[in-house]
Design a protein around this nucleic acid. Sequence first.
DNA 1: CTGAAAGCGCTTACAG
DNA 2: CTGAAAGCGCTTACAG
Lengths: 335, 335
Amino acid sequence: MQEQDNKKLTMDDVARELGVSKTTVSRAVSGKGRIGDETRQRVLDFIAKHNYKPNTMAAGLAGSCTYNIGMVLPSDLLFSDLPFFPAALKGISEIASSKEYDLILTLVEANDLTRLERVIENRKVDGLILMRTLKEDRAAAMLKKSGIPFVTMGLSKEPGVYQVDNDHEEACHELTSILLMKGMKKIAVIAGDMNYIINQNRLGGFCRAYQEQGMTPDESLIFMDAVTPVMIERAVDAVKNRSVSCIISADDLIASAILQKLEAEGLKIPIDIRLASFHDSGLLAASKVGITAVKFNTEELGREACRVLLRRIQGEDVPYVTKLPYEVALRESTK
Amino acid sequence: MQEQDNKKLTMDDVARELGVSKTTVSRAVSGKGRIGDETRQRVLDFIAKHNYKPNTMAAGLAGSCTYNIGMVLPSDLLFSDLPFFPAALKGISEIASSKEYDLILTLVEANDLTRLERVIENRKVDGLILMRTLKEDRAAAMLKKSGIPFVTMGLSKEPGVYQVDNDHEEACHELTSILLMKGMKKIAVIAGDMNYIINQNRLGGFCRAYQEQGMTPDESLIFMDAVTPVMIERAVDAVKNRSVSCIISADDLIASAILQKLEAEGLKIPIDIRLASFHDSGLLAASKVGITAVKFNTEELGREACRVLLRRIQGEDVPYVTKLPYEVALRESTK
DNA sequence: CTGAAAGCGCTTACAG
DNA sequence: CTGAAAGCGCTTACAG
């Protein structure tokens, strides 16, 4: 009780109280360097009892390690793809905090890397997670050059980058294959910002499914970069009189805009047209008919990304690409 | 170009190159301490040209300042009250990064303060923003004891706490008053977790509006802690045959659940019943009828909270309570 | 297995 | 207005 109210204990205090050197205390705390079992235990006991906490700033300066990991998120993703960020964050936070790491969150605006550069140059983090990959990934390129460990959520085209993904390509491939086999030959796709690799992967899986069945997708039914409600409405307009059997929406925000538009046009699902989506967030719960969707465990994606990063920081060998499973939930909307 | 690839410049390097002391460089960089205008300019020019960046760890250790600010969020709020966190985050990030501060995000689970304690004990931040206030605010209490500057988003019952809020009490008071004056005497309220002060404020404003018009709200029409869809459905069930004129929903997630339930029950808005909500997020865009809502500028709330915190960190005097405006948008749902 | 000492890159009294 | 020097609290060769 007494010590709690005093100035914080330093390593010096601990060493003095115990009659050992700072070196010894440091070794006991960090687990690095040779030290007798008994001595280590004595130090550890004392520390636990008196609630000593090493000063991160000092440790960082001396050992160049911060116990911080950086998360980098394009700020527009805060609002689109809504359920993604919170879920991923929760997973990352869980693993990070179990290893005593804290999280520094950097929102990057468009193509402006200054905030990210500051974090790197100030050595505020031991490693980073890029929460989304881009076609022209200047952030990934910069990080690679800087030599700091990092992992991306989603596939990256930069060679030699550690990446964790739900395999959206394969997921969209499977979804499309199923729809095709069910007899829907004319499928439209409405996808978001094609600068995000994830959207490219989805589209890629879609096309591959067609090709594997010896068909070619109708390019006039593929709508890319549908980032505003108006663009989505236009896409639906362009689709509605062409006897399309099904629309695949590249995420739930798009799907819910499509739903509204279809309703406004008086088109019923699955009678007049069918609909399938990615993600399966609460956004679609409002729909009376169940919407077929590819489901991902985004929290687990966050956890895994964080695990991989931590291993990289420790210098462990990790495979470059980790793919996590997905699940296709078939529901009424594609009956 | 040359220096960019070399080891990072240190303050020592700069001092040597310029033929001045480290002290002088430090003063020029920090702006603290007496220094000649001309000297300062020389140093600043050199720094800009050679892209010198002070090492935060070192500065932190010596001057005990981290250039980090902490954001603390109860993890359940990541998913409920959906639009709040991203918007607030964006605002905070904007101000913080304009002052060269980075953001450390701490998710706290239920009543577990360990993560927060770690951030404090490791002195990882210069100050914190509590993104939500609680009835029993152990986090606020702990921070106050620790003496570290912090501000809360939302009102706090702890005395002597700096707080920034949208004045939900007054907002709900105004909303309710308007509804009452429009002749809706029997209003039900469905509110979320009452551990959050914000929900108490909303309810408080509601009751005050009744009292000011010489009436008493019907307690059996006030539903608190409606945190699951099932509870919200039950509340609607309890309301539906009691000729209630309007339901006030304490946030958009609840409102959208209410909408679904009303639709399932075949109740039309505003014919059979009316509805008003807080926030006005995209969640309600799916509704065909416009939903009356109190609107807040959450991004600005984030900005202001961050400004207040930064002033506190600098030791400036700031009023304890800052209230930001709101707006009542009357729409079809309360016609 | 343990310790004395130098050093990480800053800040800040204290002198001048 | 400027500088020499001590110090922030750790880590880590280097010696023993």
